[in-house]
Design a protein around this nucleic acid. Structure first.
Length: 157
DNA sequence: GCCAACGTTGGC
DNA sequence: GCCAACGTTGGC
C-alpha cells in the first residue's frame, strides 16, 4: 500500500465537490504529464490513500484524504474534441492518458495550509515543498502521510 | 498579474 | 539528440 498527494484546483474540482458526488467517487481526469501518468499506471493500486491538495487556492493546502478506488484506465476527455483535455494524437486503440477513480476517505477537521507545512521541519522531505516541484501527483512517505493525518485531526491513520 | 521553474515542441 | 522558444504551473 502506497501513499500519494494529488493536486486539484478547488475552483475546478475541490474536496467539497467530491463530497457531493455519488458514492463520493470521481474519476481523477485531466492528467497530462507523463511522470504523473506513469505513477498512476505503474504504481498506484486500489486501496492506496492520497492527500487531496488544493492548488491555486486561498490558502493552498490539504483538505482531506481519498482512497484509490479504481486502477488506471483511459481518460475519456482525451477523445473529446470539445474538452480542454482533448489530445488529437491519442486514440481509443492506443490511449495516451490515464485516470484513476478516487473515493472520499476522510475530511480533515483541520485544513493544513501550505504555510503550515513549510514551517514544519518534520515535513522537510515532502516533495510538494521542494523548490520548483509542479508535479500534480507525487508519492508520499508513510510516516509523512500519518503525521499529516494527525495534523489534520484524524486519529489512527 | 508577475514570474521562477519546469516540461514540451520542433527545427536542425 | 541538442536546445531555443514557447507554454504551463502555481505561489505570491
Amino acid at each position: 500500500m502506497r501513499y500519494w498527494l494529488l493536486k486539484s484546483e478547488p475552483d475546478v474540482f475541490g474536496f467539497a465537490d467530491l463530497k457531493k458526488r455519488p458514492h463520493q467517487t470521481e474519476p481523477w481526469n485531466g492528467i497530462r504529464n507523463y511522470q504523473a501518468r506513469n505513477f498512476m499506471r505503474d504504481e498506484m493500486q486500489v486501496g492506496d490513500l492520497g492527500l487531496f491538495y488544493h492548488s491555486n487556492a486561498t490558502p493552498p493546502g490539504i483538505a482531506g484524504i481519498i482512497r484509490i478506488s479504481r486502477a488506471a484506465y483511459p481518460d475519456d476527455l482525451q477523445f473529446d474534441p470539445q474538452s480542454d483535455y482533448y489530445d488529437p494524437k491519442s486514440s481509443p486503440e492506443n490511449p495516451r492518458w490515464l485516470m484513476v477513480d478516487v473515493t472520499l476517505e476522510a475530511e480533515f477537521s483541520s485544513f493544513i495550509t501550505l504555510e503550515q507545512m513549510r514551517a514544519d521541519p518534520r515535513l522537510a522531505d515532502l516533495l510538494i515543498l521542494r523548490r520548483g516541484n509542479r508535479l500534480s501527483i507525487t508519492p508520499v512517505a508513510a510516516r509523512d502521510f500519518k503525521y499529516l493525518c494527525k495534523l489534520g485531526g484524524l486519529k489512527n491513520r
